[in-house]
Design a protein around this nucleic acid. Sequence first.
DNA 1: TTATTACTGTACGGAATCGTTTAGTAAATG
DNA 2: CATTTACTAAACGATTCCGTACAGTAATAA
Lengths: 232, 232
Amino acid sequence: MSNPNPTGMTAASDPPRRARGRPPDETKHAAILAAARALFFSGGLQSLSIEAVARAAHVSKVTVYAHFTDLPGLIRKVILAQRTDMTAALEGLPKTPGGLRQALIEFGLCLMDFLTGDEFLTLQRMLATQAGQQPWLGPLIYREGAEATCAKLARLLEASVERGDLRPHDSLQAAEQLLGMWQGIQTTGLLIGGCPPPTPEVLRRRIECGVDLILSAHAPASPAEDSASRDS
Amino acid sequence: MSNPNPTGMTAASDPPRRARGRPPDETKHAAILAAARALFFSGGLQSLSIEAVARAAHVSKVTVYAHFTDLPGLIRKVILAQRTDMTAALEGLPKTPGGLRQALIEFGLCLMDFLTGDEFLTLQRMLATQAGQQPWLGPLIYREGAEATCAKLARLLEASVERGDLRPHDSLQAAEQLLGMWQGIQTTGLLIGGCPPPTPEVLRRRIECGVDLILSAHAPASPAEDSASRDS
DNA sequence: TTATTACTGTACGGAATCGTTTAGTAAATG
DNA sequence: CATTTACTAAACGATTCCGTACAGTAATAA
């Protein structure tokens, strides 16, 4: 509103306009958030109360209220912070050189490593319980997580189509199928604590078989399969 | 223990050994359970408290304690009741006559109709939050639900192999892939309230494409594809 | 009828939180 | 210095829920 810098360009480093009184301690903010996350990770939303967070962060309860309006507000921030980590992890998925098959497998390995990790599963569980109360959170995560990843994978396939390594096909659908096969039934199993985490061998096999299935389905018409079954 | 009927055969209808005092009112038990389920369905585990259940069931709080020892005990029973419904629904999946493709599609339609329904999603959410507290629940549901379904699907494929409609292959793996493709990324999306429920058209398309992918991958060697691309 | 058991209603003590208030201390600006 | 803002510690009233207790009513068997 009453912006003292109407040029729109922030001069050098943001105007260090020290507000007037004692400056807010960013450390506290971080500590609270960290405590909240830690607390949640070791006991679910149940154990996430303002008072517990204040205790764990070695901070006055009032300070918590000063930084985060509500308990819902705090939860929201926790989830959003988690989201940031998550999307960062997804952005960092490999753009391996090498053949398409190898690239897909590499992609799948990294992705599944992430999806079967505690960090992600916990976030997922939190979202599942919050689905009712904070309906806007789900779509946000879904779009930035699942859909974005699917699109990324689809682009990988699309690129191969343009290079002639694959026949033209519905890449988005193929990406979805691939993701589905990678996850199989185990993802939900992990979510409900119904099965142990997959061994690397099982995971790798599932990923490779999925990739091969997709690749063979959309391989170029030439009967001599050359780009799909080469490198191990 | 002090069984008055040591023959093991229950004479006619179970001995109506009226216990001595006022008989327990089965109605109450059912009412409590129903109230608990309803209550959970409209507010998550959060809103599931002994007092709320007693209120909703029009029953004294003491009665609740008489029928279910604990709050955890009540939750346990709620989940187990839900499991019973669930497994029943899965048992009832169709054994359509007709061709393999049609049978698989029918199977997929019914299954996905179930998996994307509120009943199932809510159970899933409940389990996701309870994964920490009641570790034995997850495996139970997972085995009777996901794994049993997968095995059932695998048997369907296996039978086709024996009939010669499919080449020999790892049927269990194929079943997992099929289930994965059917669920795609949307199942978890639904769980976290991240996306709207799929339209029947989308669902049907996803199911059919998955089936076709699997079938074409394991079709018998004959180049004349006859059993896969027929009927629409 | 009497004994026995199921259920009701109400109340209690204890605990955990919530969100707010108050009074005081700490750190910065002018 | 005075002012302003951030933070602390402690307490408060309110709410909710737990699990239990008590006194009384209802239904059934002996």
